[in-house]
Design a binder for these strands. Structure first.
Lengths: 128, 128
DNA sequence: CATGCTTGACTACAGCTGTCGTCAGGCGCA
DNA sequence: TGCGCCTGACGACAGCTGTAGTCAAGCATG
């Protein structure tokens, strides 16, 4: 089980590649690295590290490598959330709720997601 | 603004102290460090680093120092959540919601918090 | 052929974190 | 008075992350 840690920037990059699979390094540099002022070698290094940790695969296509995320869409993110809640919040969700309520802006769609979540949880509890 | 970064373990420790203010190092070692196999010096170092970053204060009482968190209760945690959502989740809350719904166990009290949150958000929206 | 751009693999390096060991000064008790 | 324990301050070190420069092999082009 690849339980390897993953840094913030690495995660952001991983997310990018998850959204744009089969990208060449050059493409990632253009579409991700350049906008944040990262050198080509930096992007390459991060991608290789992610590959070493088992989050990315690559395949040689037409001479150059194309990288893709291994986990399905969104899995990376939920994994990150799981780790965060576990390691940082000691398993408690309360701080998250507190923050949501403090912070002003919650988009309509987010609110909808939350409502759906509560519904799901409620019915799940009733069934018990 | 003390915008200093803060590691996972450091954060956990900070949270502990937030819940048990005016603790001496010995107390923190006994109540926090020992259970996770940390040496006294480790705990001390972390506490000092937290102090250097501006998250803890200490006052000499009866010879030895007593440490307390500077931020009010919970602020540390919500700050951590804010950073996490911002840096790692790129500002989107969806992964969080997705994870909660995937994960089986949500305690009754957590569910209650979520319900309250949704209520708050709903009424807040209506007022607009 | 000689040059030059593209792609990958390596190497480097500083800053942060997690973890300690150790040293020196006080304090209390035999 | 002397010894041992508690408390703080420092120094150390390895591993991870963020960021990058550089070198060598390939391919394209004049």
């Amino acid at each position: 089980m690849s339980k390897k840690t993953i840094g913030d920037q690495e995660l952001a990059l991983l997310q990018y590649i998850e959204d744009a699979p089969k990208s060449s390094v050059a493409e990632v540099v253009a579409g991700y690295g350049e906008s944040r002022g990262l050198a080509r070698s930096t992007v390459l290094t991060m991608m290789e590290r992610l590959r070493a940790k088992g989050y990315l695969t690559r395949r040689r296509i037409d001479g150059s490598f194309r990288y893709s995320a291994i986990n399905g869409t969104g899995e990376v993110m939920t994994g990150a959330v799981a780790r965060f809640v576990q390691n940082t919040l000691q398993g408690s969700v309360s701080p998250f709720v507190a923050w949501m309520s403090e912070r002003g802006q919650v988009s309509d769609s987010e609110l909808a997601e939350l409502e759906a979540l509560v519904d799901t949880l409620q019915s799940r509890r009733e069934k018990r």
